[in-house]
């Protein structure tokens, strides 16, 4: 009898911690479906008495949210495609080839992976103004490669190092070229690593704030992070339900990743920061 009781007690303890950590997210969801008047009820209702989707409707029909959303999709997808393509070739080169300067390059990658964005932001701003690219989504794609490329290279390098070399050697003995072996032998084995790197890169770009704040100052090319924050700053009286609805919508891609592709996230964690 005693062990079961202890087990139940431990489970209650564990789950109350988990729920406390998750509470802000639960509260965001609840606030987004409460009608305006219920928000100011004292004491607050934990579950809404009446459910409404009016805030979501307002968000989509009366604000620039959809434009920001589209911009974020374009921006994050473009950054991910460029970065993953370049980094896959780069990681292949860093791990499987020998040439002068390779070690220092690997060092440079790790160094830039840790470099703070604020150091690069001023010269990048000047560069974009000089090139006439400021206020474009393209300028953000360029800026995002500064953190996404070292990151993707670092992850892919460690995935690549985990692939055994003998299969590649066997293919080379059978007369395959290096690039042929890369395509037929390495790429299929690297695929899970590529997916997880792409997911991480996408999430990083989706969540980025500082470069978007500095480089883009027009609603036409603003991504979600600065766009939604502007809805808070520029509003005369703050509509919290609307902002919570925006927060939920902004997290939708993430929820999809969590629901279906979570194993790739954990894998990336293992390969990236932690194992180093």
């Amino acid at each position: 009898m005693m062990p079961t009781f202890k087990k139940i007690l431990f489970n209650l303890f564990a789950w109350s911690i988990v729920l406390a950590v998750a509470f802000p997210l639960f509260w965001m969801l609840v606030t987004s479906v409460k009608p305006g008047f219920e928000l100011f009820r004292r004491p607050p209702t934990i579950l809404p008495e009446t459910w409404t989707l009016e805030h979501y409707w307002k968000l989509l029909s009366e604000t620039n949210f959809l434009i920001y959303f589209r911009n974020s999709i374009i921006l994050s997808t473009a950054t991910t495609l460029v970065v993953v393509a370049v980094a896959t070739l780069g990681a292949f080169s860093l791990v499987r080839f020998k040439y002068r300067g390779r070690e220092s390059l690997a060092f440079l990658v790790l160094f830039t992976y840790l470099l703070p964005s604020v150091v690069l932001i001023i010269p990048l701003y000047l560069l974009m103004v000089g090139l006439g690219l400021s206020n474009t989504i393209f300028s953000l794609v360029i800026a995002y490669t500064t953190f996404a490329l070292p990151y993707a290279l670092w992850l892919l390098r460690s995935f690549m190092a985990g692939i055994p070399e003998d299969l590649e050697s066997a293919a080379l003995c059978d007369g395959a070229t290096r690039m042929g072996a890369f395509r037929d032998v390495i790429l299929p084995q690297l695929l899970p690593g590529i997916i997880s790197t792409a997911l991480f890169t996408f999430i990083l770009s989706w969540n980025e704030y500082l470069y978007a704040l500095v480089l883009v100052n027009s609603d036409a090319s603003r991504p979600l992070t600065t766009g939604v924050m502007n809805m808070l700053i520029s509003s005369f009286n703050i509509e919290w339900s609307l902002l919570m609805a925006a927060s939920v919508m902004m997290s939708v891609p993430l929820i999809i990743v969590f629901a279906f592709l979570q194993s790739y996230l954990t894998r990336g964690f293992g390969a990236g920061g932690v194992k180093g």
Partner: peptide, 9 residues
């Protein structure tokens, strides 16, 4: 989640 979302919440 985005820092923006965390901060708003």
């Amino acid at each position: 989640i985005s820092t923006v979302v965390a901060v708003l919440v």
